[in-house]
Design a protein around this nucleic acid. Structure first.
Length: 563
RNA sequence: UGGGGCGUGGCCAAGUGGUAAGGCAACGGGCUUUGAACCCGUGGAUCGCAGGUUCGAAUCCUGCCGCCCCAGCCA
């Protein structure tokens, strides 16, 4: 849709359009999403994924999924699988265009030989430390390696022997011959190949040498026919090198374009750091619902549409320190979940209510709407009886101003059922409230009073005799600091203990017994919840995705500040 | 203090010489058998600062300030 394209237009699209207008790539648009399989994807990647796939789709092109697997010591198949699962879950399809940089190793090796032959690369025998010293400082020029002027034939021979596995790790490298005192550090004769006698997750022991990112990336793009190579801002300094490699070799030359990466308040957006949290056991795996990983968001109950809408609303910019507020993510979740999730009644902190004038063994069933936003969702039958549970928060002995829930002598509506009035408060020996004895008005079946009297409060409830016991996990922000990396405390120690509150003994309406892992619901008046993958028929577990907006909580907080 | 970038309301972000979109947040009000959703409305930006060019500058020029990236045989 033209209007949609216009609305979602950003500076990257504008550049693509200029290329299309000038015929630079013959109107072709080929992009790629190039993750390294060394961890799980997070929301930051969703922004890149949506840009890569979205741009290709908007201009009738295609987007490849390519694993940038050039560092075998950090990569493995678990990550390859997880990444594919996550990208698919988001709703993107790379078709037959699945690639691995390692698929190109042989070709890359030949191209490296060409570079050597043409005098653009040489085998260097400096140690890692020495290379660092020779490279100099950003403000100080570097010095040429003593091996820089080595004849191509000699380098060619050495390079072949590197491949043959004759040399130990770290003893030699293949380096680009560019400019040892360029103000751009990346151009000071960067390493192109290093020796690593490490088994690769795909090529096994075939290679004792592996190409570096700066050599592999532009050539993989080129080999695959990519036209627009979109990456984040920190690679801007690498673009001259990207261009150099392609120009020296005289191959198809895509355009690299950089954009600002996404940061989110109260969390971390770094595969490495997230990996540390996972490894240390501080969170329950890469899919812990508190993590900003795609797997975590999924387990938390976010929908693919809501996550995509989120990155879409954030927009595309070139600001590198932009940090988006949590509220926007929550908004996007509620917006989608509100129109798609089934409603249910659930009590998280149960308080027993006995309807003293309700017949002992009577059970009634009420038809409640599954989704008021969607009539086609139908209704379900919910049992009602003499003994019920309501939310402890919904009763106050000494109700504050504007509290219009239950209190001694007050009448409220039990959603879809009856109007009830609190007659008596029962306490235990410690004086805490353990039960409410209420009367119900038989004339108000369904929740409306025939005399037209209004009740301001409507409460959710669950029949005690039919209630399903469940564990409900309430999640909050992982860190209490909006920018955990800037906190006084080391981020490793800064996880907010309140970020997970597991509540047992929650009472659910019986229809929820049929819920399967991954199913999402709105627990009325509480929020959106999703069945955890670890949930079992006898022991249901629900994760809270996000609360409903809560104006009363806001009012109550204001009141507390005053007093 | 070398190079490359960025600075538009609380948070994102349009706009690229013609007199500051939009979203989120905030704050009012309406409606309501979810204090939700929905609807209506309000406030807020001297466009980092200072000069200059121009009839006219967020947009062009100069200087300054602040923030981010680069010294892996990581990506």
């Amino acid at each position: 849709m033209a209007s949609e394209t216009a609305a979602g237009r950003n500076f990257v699209h504008r550049i693509v359009e200029e290329h299309n207008a000038s015929g630079r790539f013959g109107g072709e648009v080929v992009t790629r999403f190039p993750p390294e399989p060394n961890g799980y994807l997070h929301v930051g990647h969703v922004k890149a994924i949506a840009l890569d796939f979205g741009t290709a789709e908007a201009y009738g092109g295609r987007c490849h999924l390519r694993f940038d697997d050039t560092n075998p010591s950090k990569e493995n198949d678990e990550y390859v699988d997880a990444i594919q699962r996550d990208v698919r879950w988001l709703g993107f399809d790379w078709g037959k265009h699945l690639y691995f940089a390692s698929d190109h190793f042989e070709q890359l090796y030949e191209l490296a030989r060409q570079l050597i032959r043409d005098g653009h690369a040489y085998v260097c025998e400096l140690s890692p430390e020495e290379i660092g010293e020779y490279r100099g400082q950003p403000t100080r020029p570097g010095r040429p390696s003593p091996w820089r002027e080595r004849p191509p034939e000699e380098s060619l021979d050495l390079f072949a022997r590197m491949r043959a596995g004759e040399f130990p790790d770290g003893s030699r490298t293949l380096r680009a011959r560019i400019d040892v005192d360029s103000p751009n550090m990346n151009l000071r004769d960067p390493v192109l190949y290093r020796i690593q006698h490490v088994r690769h997750h795909r090529t096994g022991d075939a290679w004792p040498i592996y190409p570096m990112y700066d050599f592999t990336h532009p050539l993989s793009d080129s080999i695959e026919g990519v036209t627009h190579s979109l990456c984040s801002l920190e690679f801007e300094n690498h673009r001259p090198l990207y261009d150099w490699v392609l120009d020296r070799l005289g191959v198809h030359h895509p355009q690299q374009i950089e954009f600002g990466r996404l940061n989110l308040e109260y969390t971390l957006m770094s595969k490495r750091k997230l990996g540390e949290l996972v490894a240390s056991g501080q969170v329950d795996g890469w899919d812990d619902p508190r993590l900003p990983t795609i797997s975590g968001l999924r387990r938390r109950g976010f929908t693919p549409a809501s996550v995509r809408a989120f990155v879409e609303r954030v927009g595309m910019g070139r600001k590198d320190d932009a940090t988006v507020e949590w509220a926007l993510l929550e908004h996007c979740a509620r917006e989608d979940l509100n129109r798609t999730s089934q409603r249910a009644l659930a009590v998280l902190d149960p308080l027993r209510v006995v309807l003293t004038n309700y017949p002992e063994d009577q059970v009634e069933h009420f038809e409640l709407a599954n989704n008021p936003e969607d009539a086609s969702a139908g209704t379900r039958s919910v049992p009602f009886g003499r003994e019920l549970f309501i939310e402890r928060d919904d009763f106050r002995e000494d109700p504050p101003h504007k509290f219009f829930r239950l209190a001694p002598g007050r009448e409220v509506r039990l959603r879809g059922a009856y109007l009830v009035t609190c007659q008596e408060v029962v306490r235990d020996a410690d004086g805490s409230v353990v039960e409410l004895r209420c009367s119900y008005d038989p004339e108000t079946r369904g929740g409306d009073a025939p005399d037209g009297r209004k009740v301001k409060g409507t409460l959710h409830w669950v029949s005690a005799a039919h209630a399903l016991d469940a564990e409900v996990r309430l999640y909050d922000k992982l860190f209490s600091h909006p920018r955990p990396e800037d906190a006084e405390v080391d981020w490793r120690q800064a996880i907010d203990p309140a970020s997970l509150e597991a509540r047992r003994g929650c009472k659910l309406e019986p229809s929820l017994a049929k819920a399967k892992p991954g199913d999402r619901f709105q627990f009325e008046r509480l929020g959106y919840f999703c069945v955890d993958p670890g949930s079992a028929p006898g022991a249901p577990v629900f994760n809270r995705t996000v609360t409903l907006r809560d104006t009363w909580a806001k009012l109550a907080a204001r009141g507390e500040k005053r007093s």
